[in-house]
């Protein structure tokens, strides 16, 4: 597993900052390694000192659990995303990258943003991040 280089991290940080500025309902976007280390974080909740670190671990756990659940129910494909539909928030976890650079992109937003719109934002971010990783 290859962590992000400084250049990659800076480029991704700019993209995620831009996304958070464009959609104020997004509280947090976090990129973590698949084994739970925070890499890049953006959004209004990033200032909460411990949150990104803890959430990175939780996001990777949930992604792995989703993958295991998928296998158990017969899925032959890799897991793309996990959606948490809370009464006040939506959390979408999306696998990003591949090979030696695989990450979990976690996005937390108010429910004011519809699930469809949020999914579109997340998938667009994932595409941009994958381009930056190449």
């Amino acid at each position: 597993m290859k962590p992000l280089s400084k250049i990659q991290a800076t480029a991704l940080q700019l993209r995620l900052n831009h996304c958070c500025a464009r959609v104020p309902e997004i509280r947090l976007i976090l990129l973590a390694t698949v084994d739970g280390f925070q890499q890049v974080v953006a959004g209004s909740q990033r200032a909460d000192a411990e949150l990104p670190e803890k959430f990175a671990a939780i996001a990777s756990s949930m992604m792995a659990l989703g993958e295991a659940a998928g296998k158990e129910v017969g899925s032959k494909k890799r897991l793309e995303a996990v959606v948490l539909d809370l009464t006040d928030l939506r959390v979408i976890l999306r696998m990003v990258g591949g090979g030696k650079q695989q990450f979990v992109l976690a996005t937390v937003a108010d429910r004011k943003v519809s699930l469809g719109v949020l999914l579109k934002i997340v998938y667009e971010n994932a595409r941009l991040l994958e381009e930056a990783l190449c």
Binding site: M1, K2, P3, T33, V34, D35, G36, F37, A57, S60, S61, A64, L65, E67, A68, K100, Q102
Partner: peptide
């Protein structure tokens, strides 16, 4: 729920349970 271990300095192991 094993995934690739990115912290090989802490522990040189390919996979880790998350």
């Amino acid at each position: 729920t094993d995934v690739a271990n990115s912290d090989r300095e802490a522990f040189d192991k390919e996979l880790t349970t998350v």
